[in-house]
Design a protein around this nucleic acid. Structure first.
Length: 467
RNA sequence: GGUCCUAUCGUCUAGCGGUCAGGACGCUGGCCUCUCACGCCGGAAACACGGGUUCGAUUCCCGUUGGGACCA
């Protein structure tokens, strides 16, 4: 097999949405899996809706996902001379012709065809006229009128279309601009794309494209039409289903690895495996196991996968992803042993980095604010005795390790006759402001003697004032 | 309206003629436990329907119905 060459051709008319990201991922992973090449092409021929901001947003999203490209980015607006050349080729070989039928006239044809129960299509009025180039003329492709065109689709199998259904479609408008199906084919031929993986919303375009390949004497690429991603109500994914842009998921605290894992696993499988690292995906991704039916985007599953990835990511690898959230919460956090420990106590307790940053608050603030309900429920006068005893035992301690701390708590448990839970909860609220947190000994060890004693004293004062 | 695709628990899916129809998310019962999580053990939950083909269909074929897409 020759080198696999895939491509991703986004239109820069907005952000990169999750559906687009998924097809980009399929193409990228397939190229990487086969040690082939991946080409990026920006389809910006719709000059009205295309913007530089969108181009930048798409690059940004691809970078976050870790998708790089071996060739490009190509911009279609810079390639009009190539399209013109190919139109001429088709004209010269008799595969295309000029047509001067007005849009009104063509529309009338359609109406009439519909009325008589026929297919709405161009009737070939100018087909044999041999018209020369002139003002307001479009260029039409001379499509075969009999026989069939079949797509040998890797995921859907053979899809057969009757050529009689197909009319002589336009490849160049009267203003000289080429049409979508035409430029795609020209580009894919020029760029040597031999494997096209795209959404199955394109299958109906494919017969026209195949006809163009044949007319141009080019070898057909392998087609793999992957099913769409739908929203919860099983309609095409759109804004009302929630976030669409992949970068929004970054802002919500998702790890790119989790996003990749989720998006690729949606519509593709590898036995019962659910969790994949990027490397595993490169190793295992194949076209054979792409499913044939559309899938529903499920936030809960994404969340669960994100939790799994957060748990599996070493602190130092997680740090750069977490840092923006720490900073935006105003913490003076920095990479290092302290943050490593913080992460290790939190990584099994949150589904997103946003949550993790929130839960890390008590590690970074100067004075903890008590959650009103927590203080009300836990910081009661009867806690004064155990808290004061703890303070007394800790005071002379040089070693603030977990083992040393456990001894301190044991001693207080004995003299007070209280169970660990009764002592740990007030300490927890004193140190974190909340009733839920990582293990009490871990927190104490990480926070260190000074902060712990200060916070315990603060709690004692709080209870005394309150009483 | 025409064309095309599609159909296993609520969702993502395994299955590629003979399985107690498996896993994951979510839901749920329990265990662990200093709280919350994590983890572990268990539970409820699916082959859309109707015809064929076959000794035997979730699996192959044809319809129906549902869903989706594209063109208009």
């Amino acid at each position: 097999m020759s080198t696999i060459i895939t491509r991703f051709p986004p239109s820069p008319t907005g952000y990169l949405h999750v559906g687009g990201a998924r097809t980009a991922l399929f193409n990228w992973f397939y190229a990487r899996h086969t040690k082939g090449r991946f080409v990026l092409r920006i389809e910006d021929t719709d000059t009205v809706r295309s913007t530089q901001a969108s181009v930048d947003a798409i690059f940004d999203a691809l970078k976050w996902l870790g998708i790089d490209w071996d060739e490009g980015p190509y911009f279609q607006t810079q390639r009009f001379h190539i399209y013109a050349e190919y139109v001429q080729k088709l004209l010269d070989s008799g595969h295309a012709y000029y047509c001067t039928c007005s849009t009104e006239k063509v529309e009338a044809m359609r109406q009439q065809a519909m009325a008589t129960g026929g297919k709405p299509k161009y009737d070939g009025t100018c087909r044999e006229k041999g018209l020369a180039k002139c003002e307001n003329a479009v260029v039409r492709f001379r499509a075969p009128q009999t026989g069939t065109t079949v797509i040998h689709d890797v995921v859907k199998g053979n899809i057969v279309f009757q050529n009689a259904e197909q009319d002589d479609f336009i490849i160049q408008r009267s203003d000289g601009t080429p049409t979508y199906n035409f430029v795609v084919v020209v580009d894919d031929i020029c760029m040597g794309i031999n494997t096209i993986i795209r959404g199955d919303d394109h299958v109906n375009n494919t017969p026209r494209q195949i006809m163009l390949y044949k007319a141009l004497g080019a070898e057909l690429p392998v087609f793999a039409h992957v099913p769409m991603v739908l929203g919860k109500d099983k309609t095409r994914l759109s804004k009302r289903h929630g976030a669409m842009s992949v970068t929004e998921y970054r802002n919500m605290g998702f790890l790119p690895e989790a996003m990749i894992n989720y998006l690729v696993r949606l519509g593709w499988s590898c036995g019962d495996q659910e969790f994949f690292t990027r490397e595993e995906l490169i190793e295992k991704f194949s076209l054979e196991h792409i499913g044939r039916s559309a899938g529903v985007f499920d936030m809960d599953k994404l969340l669960a996968l994100n939790a799994d990835h957060i748990k599996a990511t070493p602190p130092r690898v997680l740090t750069p992803h977490l840092m923006p959230f720490l900073k935006s919460n105003g913490y003076a956090a920095e990479e290092g042993d302290y943050l490593d420990q913080v992460i290790l106590t939190l990584n099994a307790r949150c589904k997103t980095l946003l949550e993790m940053a929130e839960q890390a608050r008590f590690y970074y603030v100067d004075t903890v604010e008590y959650d009103p309900a927590a203080a009300e429920k836990v910081l009661k006068p009867e806690c004064l005795d155990p808290l004061n005893q703890l303070l007394r035992h800790m005071e002379p301690l040089a070693d603030f390790s977990i083992t040393a701390l456990e001894k301190v708590f044991l001693a207080v448990m004995e003299t007070t006759g209280l169970k660990l839970g009764k002592i740990a909860q007030p300490v927890r609220v004193a140190l974190t402001g909340k009733t839920a947190s990582p293990g009490i000994f871990e927190i104490i060890e990480i926070l260190g003697k000074t902060k712990v004693m200060n916070r315990l004293q603060q709690a004692v004062a709080y209870i005394e004032n309150r009483g």
